[in-house]
Computed example of a mutant assay.
Amino acid sequence: MVIATVKVPCVSFRSQLKKRCLLYPQRSFSALKSATRTATPPSTSKASTTSGQASATTSSNASRKSSIKNEKKAKKALTATDSTEAQLKQIESMMNMANTSNLFPTMDMWGTKLVTLDVEIPRDASLRMLFTNPGAFWHAKQHNFSNWLKNTFSMYTIAKARAFTGVNHDFRFSHLFLPRTWRQLGNVTSHSSASWLAPIRRIAMDNYLAIGRAIADKDEATLKALTTADHATKVNKIVRTRKPGEVWQWKVLSDVSDKALFQEKSLFRPLAISPGATIVSIRSGEVYVAKEPPKRGNRLVIHALVKFETTQELKVFTKQGQPVDAKSAEPHTVVEYLVLEKVGWYDNTWQVRDQIYK
């Protein structure tokens, strides 16, 4: 009797698991997990038991690390989601303000407190500085050139919105190809009566005189109309801290008429007298961002830095008419840099909002 023996290939548990992982890579981790739970090793020796414990420890450490990484990723995702939701809420609130502005026509949704725009005082860059202090000369030139670029862009923004006070013009993009347009946009310090800023200079000078007289006369109503909240606090402090019984007489002695304000200046013919008021820097920004245009005016807020150079005298008397200090009453030259503001959708005049010192 012959007994036929058939050899059965011995396939280890590791090779089976490896083959299964290669065939189904997306289920490799689940297969390994289920195999470690249900499979029984072929031998129960001490070596296999030790290796099983080591592999179990390694797998537990790996699972802990992966869980920590997953928690960190989840926290980052939650933080990003929170920040995105906060931004969306801000955008939604702005859209609600824009949509509800028609429902409340008497409420100014965009009348928030603004900071003074980056108006700048031009620096002295005389030709003598090129030889005495060339570093300061070139630094001043760069500063003035930067201010000129910002002035020109702001003038273009105002012209495009047709927001120049007292000037009726139909500005179009094709006008940028005309030399006379660039003479207007690039020369904010012009003293010509044909300048787009000429009416603003006249208003600035008149308001400056009215504010000086209001401080001397304790006229708080005029100060409130011609100054914004921050500057009104400063001038009201001057009025209220005066000694009781004093009488002030303030006067500008220099010429502030149209003849002095509007003079033609050329390369070989300087100004005959001081113009009194000169715009040295101007900035503009579109603050009214509602979908519907404002009921009146435009969307811009304009800040103009005006240099006032006048000869003044201030006389202080007691109730009996005796002068308090005769020396301080002598005429003296005063140079001030005041920032004037115009809110485009308000029907009011230019107001002084700040003072800048050189």
Rank of each mutant, 00 (worst) to 15 (best):
R202F: 01
R202N: 05
A204F: 03
A204V: 05
M205Q: 12
M205D: 05
M205A: 10
D206M: 12
N207E: 06
N207H: 13
N207A: 13
Y208R: 08
A210D: 11
A214C: 08
I215F: 00
D217L: 13
K218P: 00
E220A: 13
A221Y: 02
A221T: 12
A221F: 04
T222P: 02
L223I: 13
L223Y: 02
K224H: 07
L226D: 01
L226I: 01
L226C: 04
T227W: 03
T227P: 02
A229V: 12
D230R: 12
H231S: 02
A232I: 00
V235L: 15
N236A: 08
K237S: 15
V239T: 06
R240P: 00
R240S: 15
T241H: 12
T241P: 01
R242A: 11
K243I: 11
K243L: 13
P244C: 07
G245W: 07
E246S: 12
W248Q: 12
Q249A: 10
W250G: 04
V252W: 02
L253G: 06
L253I: 08
D255H: 07
D255G: 07
D255L: 07
D255C: 09
V256Y: 06
S257M: 09
K259V: 06
A260T: 01
L261A: 09
F262A: 06
F262M: 08
Q263K: 11
Q263C: 09
E264S: 08
S266T: 15
F268C: 04
F268I: 13
R269F: 06
R269T: 13
A272E: 15
A272Q: 14
I273V: 15
S274V: 06
G276H: 07
G276Q: 08
A277C: 10
A277K: 04
I279T: 08
I279P: 02
V280M: 09
